[in-house]
């Protein structure tokens, strides 16, 4: 137990709603509606700098919708969102292009289906966004790209096209591409679901390293081992709402919500 728990002030804080001030990401009452259906229903979420939060839950719970709301691939129907110094209020109409850009610049995203650009080599996949968005020179962008490709163990694949790389390699290139943009929050949407388990392990290894480098991460995952051992917090999502959130050990071993228990017994086979 940390020292701060001994001080009455901070323990009061921990018991109440997550602290707004110290958090790096703060989503307040986000709702995303598709027609009549609320894929994300009044979700509030705070993420501290350097924190890794795993989002778990059954299919169709709205996990993808939630993290897509965080980089505005889906524009929430209502609520507020702050990442770093960028704030967007969705209650007051469509957000401006500039505010979308500000917010997005904080984030990087890794998709289940990799989404590498198939007509570019691995290197160009990583350099082009840097050159177009951050206006880096080709030399600068390439130096940075090689750095990131090295970080994911793929500097040898720089000249290869995505079709010449395995799924696991493609996903690692996609991670390098996102990292080269200097994100401060990395969003992962089931990054290993399309891969064989042993290949998925490579990806999880890269993510583990990223977590230990203090990257702030939100990870939608079915990998309970990862959720348990790498994340600081696990959020359980069911039918558009986060029904329970807490330290992984507590969620995994002593969940409070009956629906969490049901979900876990289904995926863990207990």
């Amino acid at each position: 137990m940390s020292i701060s728990h001994l001080s009455p002030n901070s323990s009061a804080l921990e018991e109440g709603a997550p602290a707004m001030e110290g958090s790096f990401v703060s989503a307040v009452q986000l709702t995303k509606q598709f027609g009549e259906h609320k894929a994300v229903n009044d979700v509030s979420l705070d993420v501290a700098k350097g924190e890794v939060i795993s989002i778990i839950g059954p299919s169709g719970a709205g996990k993808s919708s939630l993290i897509r709301c965080l980089n505005l691939l889906e524009v929430p129907s209502s609520g507020r969102l702050r990442i770093g110094d960028a704030t967007v209020d969705f209650d007051t109409g469509t957000p401006s292009k500039a505010s979308v850009r500000n917010l997005r610049n904080y984030t990087g995203m890794v998709f289940q289906s990799f989404n590498l650009f198939p007509h570019f080599t691995a290197l160009k996949n990583v350099t082009l966004p840097q050159m177009r968005v951050h206006r880096r020179s080709k030399a600068e962008a390439e130096e940075r790209a090689m750095q990131e490709l090295k970080r994911v163990g793929l500097e040898s694949k720089a000249g290869a096209y995505p079709a010449q790389c395995s799924g696991g390699q493609q996903q690692r290139i996609a991670i390098a591409r996102a990292l080269a943009m200097d994100p401060q929050l990395m969003l992962f949407d089931e990054p290993t679901s399309g891969l064989d388990p042993e290949i998925g392990a490579e990806i999880l290894q890269v993510m583990r390293k990223l977590a230990s480098d203090n990257m702030t991460m939100l990870v939608v995952t079915h990998e309970m081992e990862f959720a348990r051992h790498v994340s600081n917090q696990v959020a359980v999502m069911v039918e558009g709402s986060i029904i329970e959130q807490g330290p992984p050990e507590q969620i995994m071993t002593a969940p409070n919500n009956i629906r969490t228990q049901k979900f876990l017994s289904a995926v863990l086979g207990r």
Partner: peptide, 23 residues
């Protein structure tokens, strides 16, 4: 062109024009 392509470009903060032009 799969939707994921322009979503990836979006997630990298690329502009609409750049997304069309390069991707």
């Amino acid at each position: 062109v799969p939707k994921g392509q322009s979503e990836a470009a979006n997630s990298l903060s690329m502009s609409v024009v750049d997304t069309y032009r390069f991707i």
